[in-house]
Nucleic acid binder design. Structure first.
Lengths: 226, 226
DNA sequence: TTCATAGTTTGATATTAATCGAACTATTCT
DNA sequence: AGAATAGTTCGATTAATATCAAACTATGAA
């Protein structure tokens, strides 16, 4: 069967522990260098190099040279979405579930998914936008309403400029921890960027976990309920 | 990292060509015996047997004994959704795309996704339900409106009984061919069952392709636009 | 009971691919 | 230019696993 070979190719890329760890690290959204990824995966740089070459060749990862560094990142939002989905399946129906560690609660609460907010907080945020009519989840992925455009423009996000980019403004992504959606796309990324810059959340070192500062939590709640 | 090992486990299950072909075959929704799957994957029965054991052990596939046969099926709708997502990534960003064969157009048009309708037809159907207010895509996956309940009850689907089952009535699933959603869940399955029984579509032999009969196409269009 | 079919288990083989040290290229810093 | 750092390529080794033939178990049919 043709369909089989296609998914096998991707599966085998994801199926190696070293590569899987690299991909998981890249879910954090920031581009990482080859050596950082080697460390993350627990392998030497030569091995990391071959793995990265395979990931790039397979289209899951893209690389950008910058001086003597090479920054690796997930190729695409859709790759991030796929990895989230796989994590979701692993979380629900793994036979011998990895026992939920202390970090798991925080991960479920708020985390990075590529470059936007995921977890309870991300799901709550999208829900609030939908409730207030800013985002409509009808047909084709998701759409920003006129009211939403105004709201986010007031908030300081340049929707106009964003809508001229190739990347879609609104996209949604299935959350593995909760089985709901959160907001991705250009808008999702811009909002998270704002949250980081305003100091609402801080990224935990070497992890995808996002921690709200006390003041940030209040601001965020206001942002959702005003 | 913990997250990595989880996804690696699933990845490696999907990553073997023989297993991937089996999974692809099981996307057709009908449970298949070990020998049928061996044939599908192009391996002997002992090999198939070990592969199937791994898939079951990994939680991706479940098995039901029936006399001297063992019927294998995907464990869960979420597994089917994951496979669709992987296919989607393979389709969009594969470096050397497998050239689209003659079957691909038909696949994109209408196909089985586990036990419900996918492809252009599936996407159009969900879109129509949303437009007419039968299904609301707000928060948590998707919800059936009162009007929708009446509509489907008139259509001959016992929503009342369905809502008491464990399986959610409405769920949506990302379509790999079109990048939109189609309807899954108990309702999605029931509608397809109706379509099959009423002879609107016929399943192509040994494939996921669904072909509309001329009359069936008319009925279906009516169903969407009445 | 006997035969046939469905499927698994065992054991041996072969292939694949992950791994690392060492050598090599390229870029930056002094 | 020379030294240091980032990263890749090469070659050899090792570990994992897919594969099948043959033997075995279980169910159904004659």
């Amino acid at each position: 069967m043709k369909a089989g070979t296609d998914i096998a190719q991707i599966g085998s890329l994801v199926g190696d522990p070293a590569r899987a760890n690299m991909l998981a690290a890249l879910m954090g959204g920031t581009a990482l260098t080859a050596s950082e990824l080697a460390l993350e995966a627990g392998v030497t740089s030569p091995t990391a190099s071959t793995h990265l070459a395979k990931l790039v060749d397979g289209g899951l990862v893209r690389v950008k040279r910058q001086g003597r560094h090479r920054y690796y990142a997930l190729a695409d939002e859709s790759v991030a979405g796929m990895l989230e989905t796989i994590m979701g399946v692993a979380a629900t129906l793994g036979p011998k579930r990895v026992l939920p560690g202390p970090g798991d609660k925080a991960l479920r609460e708020a985390r990075l998914c590529y470059d936007h907010l995921a977890g309870e907080a991300g799901v709550a945020m999208l829900e609030s936008f939908v409730d207030r009519g800013f985002v409509r989840l009808d047909r084709e992925t998701a759409a920003l309403s006129p009211a939403g455009s105004r709201f986010f423009a007031d908030f300081g996000i340049d929707i106009e400029a964003m809508s001229h980019k190739r990347r879609p403004v609104c996209r949604i992504c299935l959350d593995w921890s909760v089985r709901r959606w959160h907001l991705a796309g250009g808008l999702g990324a811009a909002i998270l960027e704002h949250m980081m810059r305003a100091g609402w959340v801080r990224r935990e070192k070497d992890s995808r976990i996002l921690r709200f500062t006390p003041a940030g939590r209040r601001e965020f709640d206001l942002f959702l309920h005003q």
